[in-house]
Structure formats: structure tokens, C-alpha cells
Simulated assay, not measured.
Amino acid sequence: MPRTTAAQRLLDVRTIYHEPQIEQWARARQVLERFPDAERVEVPSHQDIPGLYGNPGGVERWVRTKREVLVLGEKKSLAARPNGRSADFIAPSTSNGCAMACSYCYVPRRKGFANPVTVFVNIEKIAGYLARHAARQGPKPEPNQCDPTDWVYDLGENGDCSADALVSDNVRDLVDLFAGLEGAKASFATKLVNRDLLDWDPRGGTRVRFSLMPEPMAHRLDLRTSRIPERIAAVNDFVEAGYEVHLNFSPVVVHEQWQAQWAELFEQVDDVLSERAKAQLACEIIFLTHNEQLHEVNLGWHPRGEELLWRSDLQEAKTSHSGQANVRYRAGWKGTWVRQLTDLLASRMPYCRVRYAF
């Protein structure tokens, strides 16, 4: 019996919302041809879809919408925002939303009650902008936590590039771009093992960051994703294919057994990684930040996850820079927990450099 592919498991596209005259873009035509049986619905803007965004009743179809709906639009504003944490710059998005359904994801906070994939079809303009921006930077003057030599551009701030690659060639175009850019590197985090990417030729110009958490937590929180053992097993293959591969240990969710579970995860990683993979490895450690609005949405479709994510006994309120009501682990405790986890990592995987932890 043939195996179900990632695309078949995640996507059964039945409706494509698109902006007017979308077929002027070659990338839009590619997506439409990839899903020929989908109903096409013209809308004023990818951000203005009546009945989809801002509709409280949509939460009951949260996963179904991710599976059955795509949105096509043009990315109007092109800017590479300074970052300095995971990457030097956040690249202009080539997508928004995700086919997967991680219950802690911050992207839906701005969308309301639906979060399907939006593909931005003006990829040529985005790629051209990035090439010019990278050229203007010149050589990196000194190493930083993002990279010792290259300017790093995060490609996947608002989605998952491995999943986006199931929908269009946007991600491949950017991997090809950075394969030929001197002094610049693309980077994206992913929870999906898309082995189609192994056939590309990144030539060291793209950093893939596989996100990992203990399997019991992932089973509750990382819905519609590749399982943790599959992600770990993929690291060696992606290194051999010419990618730089780092790990995102995130989000770290504190609960009564959290340290024992992370110790077990570190042992699993250490047992699987090749010496070549270990030699180039680094990681990011990110403790959970949750959001009040997202918490209310999640209660409508996945309340069991909120038992882990919404812990008033451990968390305190934090207003984000955009004015949203977030919660994070209490400052006095979080610093201790960060040190405990980094010490645990150093004892189990001493070769894994921590680029940052917070």
C-alpha cells in the first residue's frame, strides 16, 4: 500500500481565495494548476476575506480550514526588519499562516478564528529585494549570536517553510537565491520533515532549524506535524544534503515532569546525530510565551492543550510591544529554569552551542 505523502496528509485544498487579477503572477498560476479542482473565490485583499477572518464560528473548523483553504495575494510592503536574536534580519514574508496546528503558535493572534496558508505570489520582487539588501550590507564586521560570518535572514517568521514548499516553489526559489549570495544565509525553523528539500542544492546557504520538544508534549501541542523521532532522524540527512542544521528547543513548557522529559530528549538526539551533524550543531532555547486571545481560541478547538499552556500558578501577565495581552513564566522562576535547562544540555550534549536562551 503506498505511503501517504506529507502534502496528502496536510492538504486537501477545496477553496482558494485570491486577490483580483492574481493570474498575472506566474507563481499564482503554478498554485492554481497544482490544485485544479479547488473552487476559486475572488476577494478584495488577502487580509479582507468575509466569513473567514474575524468569524468566531470559524474556530470549530480550525483544522479543517487549514486543510481545505488556501489564500493567494501580493506582498505589498517589502522590508527586512532588524532582529539580532535568531537572525540579523527578518525577511519579507513569502507566506502567512500554516497547514499545521501547533496550539501555541503566535501567528493566529492577529487573524482571529482561522489561520490557513496565504501564499504571496510576487516572489520575483521579494527575491530581488533580498538580493539587493544583502549586497548593501557588505562583509559582516564581527561575529554575533546569529552567525560568525554571514548576515542571516529569517525566511519563515509567519509560517513553516517546509510546509509552504508543498504548496509552491517560493521556498525553493529563496534557497536557490541564498546558495549564490556571498556573505548571506537564509534560515527557517520547521516542524515538518519535507524530504523534497533534500533534492535541492543549498550549498551551505540555508540554515534549517528543526524544532524539538519532548514527545509527550509534542503529542499534545504539535498537531499535524512530523513526530519528534522523525525530525531528529532527518538532521543527518539534511546536513549531508548541504544544509546547515541547528535545533530549536522550543517552546519549553514547564510542568511537573519537564526536566526529566528534556533529559530524555537530549539523550535521544545524542544517540542519533552523526559526528558531522554534531560538529556543526547549535541551538536556540525558547520558553513558552502564551497569549490571552489565542487561549480563548484554543479553548474552542483544543482545550486539552491549554491545560499545559495556561498555568496561572506559574505565569505572569506581560503586555507585548504591539499591546497584546501575553503571559510568560514568572521572571524570578524563569531565570532559574533557563539555567537548569542549559546546564542539563551542557551535560548531555556538550558539543551543542547555545546561540541564545530566554
Rank of each mutant, 00 (worst) to 15 (best):
F120V: 05
E215P: 09
P36K: 03
P148M: 13
P214K: 11
S95Y: 12
D164H: 10
D313R: 07
W262H: 01
V107P: 02
R339C: 12
V208L: 14
Y351L: 10
D313I: 09
V119I: 15
E267D: 15
A91E: 11
M1L: 12
V253W: 09
D199T: 10
R132F: 11
K140G: 00
H246K: 02
A114C: 11
S312E: 15
Q268W: 13
W258C: 04
G300C: 03
L181K: 05
N194S: 00
G97E: 06
D270V: 06
E42K: 02
Q340N: 09
K75P: 15
L70W: 00
R136K: 15
V235M: 01
R339I: 03
M213S: 11
N144E: 08
R207A: 11
S320H: 08
V193M: 06
I286T: 14
V119A: 13
E292A: 13
N170V: 10
S45P: 11
V327L: 11
D48I: 11
R355E: 13
E157G: 02
G57F: 12
R224G: 07
Q340G: 05
P148Q: 15
A114D: 04
Q340V: 09
A260M: 05
R136W: 14
E182Y: 05
T342Y: 07
Q145W: 09
M1Y: 12
W310R: 09
D271E: 15
Q293H: 14
R172I: 04
A6L: 15
E307I: 01
R29W: 11
A279E: 15
H321T: 08
N194P: 05
Y153V: 07
F238C: 03
T5D: 08
G73F: 06
Q145I: 15
V239A: 00
M1S: 11
Q47P: 01
E264W: 06
A99H: 03
D222P: 00
V338S: 06
P350Y: 00
S320W: 09
E215Q: 12
L198A: 02
T118H: 10
N83I: 02
A325V: 14
K278W: 11
S320K: 06
R109C: 07
C105S: 08
Q340T: 10
L181W: 06
V117R: 00
R276F: 04
P108S: 00
R3K: 11
G138Q: 05
W258I: 05
R109Y: 13
V239S: 01
L32S: 08
G180N: 08
H321K: 09
R353M: 01
P20K: 14
V31F: 09
M213T: 07
L174T: 09
P141F: 01
W62V: 03
V71G: 07
A218I: 09
N248H: 14
S187T: 06
L192M: 06
D222M: 02
L72D: 03
I16R: 02
S162W: 00
R328W: 11
N298L: 07
R227V: 13
V107S: 00
D48M: 10
R203E: 03
P82L: 00
